[in-house]
């Protein structure tokens, strides 16, 4: 077991390195850098000036070396200009050249500087992630129990009327992406045109204090899309278990129906959905980006969009690292949890 987790972690780190490198390359392409030079320096810079600016700011090193520096594995670049001023990756106004560390990268905790939001990337991501965490917490709290209950109830008696109606609901919910359900929900519950006005159409105020009024719509919007999928998976797993021989064995030894569902079926039926729920988290990330944009809730997803659309390279890199790590960690948890839940694999 320990060996297995170790192997998985090694693969995970390898994957993370590959992915961050790809993101690094895609965000540090020549056109991006030129655009960066013009926004940081002067919009009317000549091509030559751009080239010098890039040269002076360490953007002309080979890609792999820059990636190493960003990661903190290689020493940061240093340049000395004509006047003898030393500039470098790890040197800034607060940290003069003589005290600057040799390496400063993600591994040292230095995630860089956001050119758009004008702050340390690590600080931005910290606060934004906190806000998104709250959102995710409520989403999970609403989505997972609802989805599991729906799935189990539907799968318990395949083909019954309850099954038919719950299945239709879950199909409808998987067919409604966040930007559609969000629009519909706002139109119905928040727009002045209809007049219900139960909730607020934006969640900006929720960043200061969550209320039922400002937080319901974003949470429901994300939960709705994921719920149908988990419910369908649970239902499929449940129907399969309910037709298994051992359920017939239980029935024919006189176990009552509620006990068959609770004692015999549930544990076996929830193994598969567990994996699905864990793998759903990366999908929730999409939902988060859409919903935070739609409801103007300035969390992690909103930051990612800002970074990507404003060519904020280091912030986007930071966001990508977080996103990739979240995905990989959930994959790891899902694998380990699957083994843990399944005695057939756990004890062998």
């Amino acid at each position: 077991m320990g060996l297995f987790i170790l192997r998985r972690i090694v693969i995970m780190i390898l994957t993370a390195l590959c992915l961050t490198f790809i993101v690094f390359v895609l965000t540090n392409l020549q056109p991006n850098l030129e655009k960066l030079a013009k926004t940081q320096g002067n919009v009317r810079m000549t091509d030559e000036q751009v080239a010098t600016w890039l040269e002076m700011n360490g953007y002309t090193d080979p890609m792999l070396s820059r990636y190493g520096q960003w990661l903190g594995l290689l020493p940061g670049w240093t340049r000395e200009d004509a006047e003898g001023n030393v500039t470098g990756r790890c040197i800034s106004r607060d940290v003069p050249a003589d005290v600057a560390p040799e390496r400063c990268g993600v591994l040292q905790g230095d995630w860089g500087w956001s050119t758009v939001l004008r702050d340390e990337v690590s600080a931005i991501i910290g606060t934004r992630l906190g806000l998104t965490g709250i959102l995710m917490f409520w989403v999970m709290l609403l989505m997972v129990p609802m989805a599991l209950i729906m799935g189990v109830l539907a799968g318990m008696r395949e083909g019954s009327r309850l099954d038919r109606s719950l299945s239709t609901v879950s199909i409808a919910s998987t067919a409604t992406p966040e930007y559609v359900s969000g629009v519909i929900l706002i139109a119905v519950f928040a727009s002045s045109a209809v007049g219900l006005k139960w909730f607020k159409g934006t969640a900006t105020s929720a960043m200061d204090g969550i209320t039922f009024e400002n937080f319901t719509l974003p949470v429901v919007t994300i939960a709705l899309y994921g719920m149908g999928y988990i419910a369908r998976m649970t239902r499929a797993s449940m129907t399969e278990v309910m037709t298994a021989q051992y359920i017939r064995t239980a029935r024919l030894k006189g176990v009552s129906f509620p006990n068959i569902v609770l004692k015999h079926a549930l544990r076996n039926a929830l193994i598969a959905p567990f994996t699905v729920i864990m793998l759903q988290i990366p999908w929730l990330l999409n939902g988060v980006v859409i919903v935070e944009t739609l409801f103007n809730y300035k969390g992690f997803g909103w930051t990612l969009v800002q970074a990507a659309s404003n060519n904020d390279i280091e912030l986007l890199l930071g966001c990508s690292v977080v996103a990739v790590v979240v995905v990989l960690v959930t994959q790891l948890i899902s694998d380990v949890g699957y083994i843990f839940l399944n005695p057939r694999i756990r004890i062998s």
């Binding site: 693969i11 994957t15 590959c18 992915l19 993101v23 895609l26 965000t27 392409l29 020549q30 056109p31 991006n32 655009k35 990366p282 990330l285 999409n286 980006v289 859409i290 990612l304 969009v305 990507a308 659309s309 060519n311 986007l316 966001c319 990508s320 996103a323 990739v324 995905v327 990989l328 994959q331």
Partner: peptide, 27 residues
């Protein structure tokens, strides 16, 4: 399988933001 998992580990929106930009088209 490793390659497939690599792509699947990208959040879709991030991938779109990285791939579908004028800068990328320019390259």
């Amino acid at each position: 399988s490793f390659l497939a998992n690599l792509i699947l580990a990208f959040p879709v929106i991030l991938l779109f933001y990285l791939l579908v930009t004028p800068e990328i088209v320019a390259t």
